[in-house]
Structures are given as structure tokens and as C-alpha cells.
Amino acid sequence: MKVEIVTHRDGKEATVGFEYEKRFEAERPMVLDVLLQAQARTMPDLAFRYGCRARNCGVCTVDINGKPRIACRARAREGDTISPVATLPVLSDLVVRRDGIARQMRGRLSSGGQGNNLNVEAPEAYHDLTACIECYACLDKCPMHARNFDGGLPGDVQNAEDLPDASKGYRWGNPFSLLKLQRIRIDPLTTDAGRQAAVDNAIDLGLDACVGCAGCKCGVGIDLMGQVVGELLEAAKDRLPSSKT
């Protein structure tokens, strides 16, 4: 099985062909298997992230033919092109810098203090959102996230100096950051002020970009439009321009 792997070293992009040797006739390898074999056979320094091999840790996301997929549980097919996730800046080969996303949430996670009694049952929706493994597949085609890169992708930015500084956290949000805020909103232990702050933060991160957006897609099947974006748009409807919800 032949695939193409898009590598990046010292700012130079190259596409390298790799012939995967099936370990038995009927093998249907995952993309991660292909990367591991490429490293073992022909590209010893190939850089890629992975962790649990069982779709739980969320770090091995790559683009396969331009779509973000979780490499340990995505089947590789003849002719596939494997490239780094296009929505974040590349550090090396298939490794992208993830730091700017989590860091934008600093100072935005307070639930406004906790009561004395922690023994309160959380609603079903809270657990639905907790299923997020932070794979960042949801960044694909997100207009809010794209604002960090002048409406495009990090790869479209010509000079590296013009990229936003990830170590300070990105200015504009994304479905993941909204999910974290919505999770705070529906936590029964969050105070009214904490709920209000979550909506304020969503607006500050660019919630207006979600108005009229066709929608985002979750890597592990969470209903982002229904349970996150829709809920926040509803809560902020009087404060957003021309809300169509």
C-alpha cells in the first residue's frame, strides 16, 4: 500500500512516498501503523504525536486527504495523503503546535467559587461534553479560529513572524474552547456569576462568528452545534449582531 507523507523540517515542506508492507494479507492497517512502520523502516526521525493507540488520549490527530482524523483509529487506504493538521502551525513533520488553544482559556475557567456541598448530580449534558478528548478535529473550517490567521490557515501566512504568538494563547476561540465554557455553564456547582462569565468569555472569544455558520464537526461524535454552539448563541442572543437563532 502506497501513501504520501507530508513532512516539514526547518520550514521546508516535502512530500515523501512510503510503501507500507502489510504484515499479513488481509491487514487493514490504521494510519498510525503506517507512520510507525515508516519510522521503523525508512524515516527514523519522522516526527508525529501519538499516545494510547485506543482513541482516548486525543494527541495523534492528522489530516488524511485534507480531513482531520484520529490516526490510531483511522484505516489507511491506497494513495492516502497524510499531512499535519492544517488548522494549527507546524513544528516538525506531522507535529503541530497545540499550545495556543489551551492557553487562550487561562483566566476563563472559573466557575465563580464552589458551595460547601459537592454532592450534587451533574446533568446528562455535562457528561456528554466531558466525552471531549481534545483532539482538535473541530477546528476544521471554523471561521472563529480562522480569525487568528486573517481568516485563513496558518499555512497561508507568508512570514512566520506574522503568525500569532501561541505562547500567549490565541485571541479567537474555537468549538473546543466554547465546549469548555458551556461545560462550566451547565455544571450545577457554578454560580450565577460564573455562568454569566462563561457567556461573556464566549462572546469575547468571537461567538459572533457562529451566527449563521454551517457548523462544526466533532472528532468523537459530540453534538457541538446542538449542545454547545446553539446553547451559547441562545444565551447571548440579545448581545450578538443579527442573531438568526
Binding site: 499516545g51 482516548n56 488520549c57 486525543g58 494527541v59 489551551a102 478528548i133
Partner: peptide, 11 residues
């Protein structure tokens, strides 16, 4: 060395 929180605890 891995992203924040991506440990054996998480899996």
C-alpha cells in the same frame, strides 16, 4: 512533554 493532561490518568 505531552500536551497538558494527556497522561495515563486520561486513558
Amino acid at each position: 512533554k505531552d500536551p497538558i493532561g494527556c497522561s495515563d490518568t486520561k486513558i
